[in-house]
Design a protein around this nucleic acid. Structure first.
Length: 456
RNA sequence: GGCGACGUGGCCGAGUGGCUUAGGCAAGGGCCUGCAAAGCCCUGUACCCGGGUUCGAUUCCCGGCGUCGCCUCCA
């Protein structure tokens, strides 16, 4: 059983499932106003690994991840570029899922859009106003945070402490709010801005109201897991939770937050720093699998620096796995033959708060043993098949797709055959020439006793 | 000012009260190979500083120093 760190209780505890064998999880999705950055890639990969691992373990995962398609930044961009905001959101969403596809991130089971839920949000806000938990001003509707008993649970701070420092930070809308920490549930719109009707006037919902409504609508009260990046812990998740509590509803049972992508100096890489190589750039320059590999070799809660050295090291380790996949291609695929001891070790690492670096150590160790077994040709014992299939299982479990180098076009295959023929005839000059030619065409050429194999 | 995370060998990065030489990348030596590649075997450099607890601490406690994050844009 998977044990996971829970931000709310600050301990590693079992990830309980409301319905046995089915995990309901909610991941805060992107606000679609620009290209995805490295941090988006990390978050989605972390949860993709977890999802695949659970599914591999026999758990059915229902993953709901929204698209925030109403937001001040979307409006800003639309105005700046003088085009309809819907055009911005549609385009960005398309780019988003295209990038996710390249990363090998499975599409969520549900992708609710904030704009499809405005009526329900209005209904929820009405309830909060009626029950005295929220109040109306001439700028919008705010939640009265002081009415929520344990506000600050996820931030692990008391309201009074949060306010104390804050330093010279500007408190948005301070002049309209009863308490500086109160947050907007509904923002009245200015002329020309996207607007929906409400009892308080035309406007749009606040960010924090979107996710509560959508998660509760699709997953219901007391769903299993709510996740997202560390920075969503406060205020976003805190405020989502505050609304649910104010409504008297059970919200998420477990909270999970992933660490940041940082630069070489250890500083958070986010769009506000303006130093981002975005995710699209990264995937243009490197095998997208290398990013997954890199993240697998770090713990999800810690910071990860993403730089040329790192990503290249990850790509090289991946090359070793590909080469293994190629030489093991002849071994029949048979999950039931996978080495049980290896898989048990792998599981115990993964179940321990998703210790993927340790799990990868098991993977690499198994690859080494399998290579050694293939070298010594003791395949008659079933050892090779057991280890090879264990490797395949582990790769499946974390979403690593190995490149065994099939689909070699006919002309390249012919050259490889000619190379083998030349070697057999001890015409090494010709063989070397062919090898150079193939390498120049971008192939990784491996000449073995059993013949030449080609991989991209 | 409040809350929190972290400081491990050339680099990345887990982990543990006394043998995990974790693992990956890089480096050196060897085997294999016509030569390579791939693979296998072997090798080295670690746990920020100062106290304390302990038979023993990189691992626990206290104090420093340093880096980073959050405290209503943010994965």
């Amino acid at each position: 059983m998977l044990r996971l760190y829970d931000t709310a209780t600050r301990e590693v505890r079992e990830l309980a499932m409301r319905e046995s064998g089915v995990l309901s999880m909610y991941l805060c999705g992107p606000t679609v106003y620009g290209p995805p950055h490295l941090g988006h890639g990390r978050a989605t990969l972390v949860y993709d690994v977890m999802r695949r691992y659970l599914e591999w373990s026999g758990v059915r995962v229902r993953l709901v991840s929204n698209i925030t398609d109403i937001d001040d930044k979307i409006i800003e961009r639309a105005n700046r570029e003088q085009r309809p905001w819907q055009e911005v959101t549609h385009k960005c969403e398309q780019v988003w899922f295209d990038a996710m596809g390249k990363l090998g991130v499975e599409r969520p089971t549900d992708v609710p859009h904030a704009t499809d839920y405005v009526e329900q949000m209005v209904a929820m806000i009405e309830q909060l106003v009626d029950s005295g938990r929220a109040y109306v001003t001439d700028h919008g509707v705010y939640l009265a945070v002081e009415t929520v008993a344990d506000y600050g649970l996820l931030a692990n701070q008391r309201l009074s402490d949060m306010l104390e420092g804050g330093g010279e930070r500007e408190v948005f809308g301070a002049e309209h709010k009863r308490h500086p920490a109160d947050f907007a549930l509904w923002k009245l719109s200015k002329p020309g801005e996207p607007a929906w009707p409400s009892p308080w006037g035309e406007g749009r919902p606040g960010w924090h109201s979107e996710c509560v409504v959508m998660s509760l609508d699709l997953l219901g009260e007391g769903f299993d897991l709510h996740c997202g990046g560390m920075d969503l812990r406060f205020p976003h998740h805190e405020n989502e939770r505050a609304q649910a509590v104010a409504l008297g509803k059970h919200f998420a049972n477990h909270w999970m937050h992933n660490g940041f992508v940082v630069d070489a100096e250890g500083e958070k890489m986010s769009k506000s720093l303006g130093n981002v190589d975005n995710l699209l750039d990264l995937m243009e320059h490197y095998d997208p699998r290398a990013y997954r590999m890199l993240l697998l070799q770090a713990h999800y809660r810690g910071p990860v620096s993403v730089g040329q050295d790192n990503i290249e090291a990850a790509a090289k380790s991946l090359a070793g796995l590909d080469s293994f996949a190629a030489r093991a291609a002849a071994v029949a695929v048979d999950p039931s033959a996978a080495d049980a001891e290896v898989l048990a070790r792998f599981r115990s690492r993964m179940d321990d708060d998703l210790d993927t670096p340790a799990a990868m150590a098991v993977l690499f160790d198994t690859v080494r043993r399998a290579n050694a077994a293939i070298d010594s040709e003791t395949s008659g014992t079933g050892q090779v098949a057991a280890l090879v299939n264990a490797v395949r299982e582990m790769c499946t479990a974390v979403g690593l797709v190995l490149n065994a180098g099939d689909d070699v076009p006919a002309d390249a295959a012919a050259k490889a055959a000619a190379l083998d023929a030349a070697r057999a005839a001890k015409d090494f000059a010709t063989a070397d020439a062919l090898r150079v030619e193939l390498q120049a065409a971008g192939w990784t050429v491996e000449t073995t006793k059993t013949g030449t194999t080609l991989r991209r």
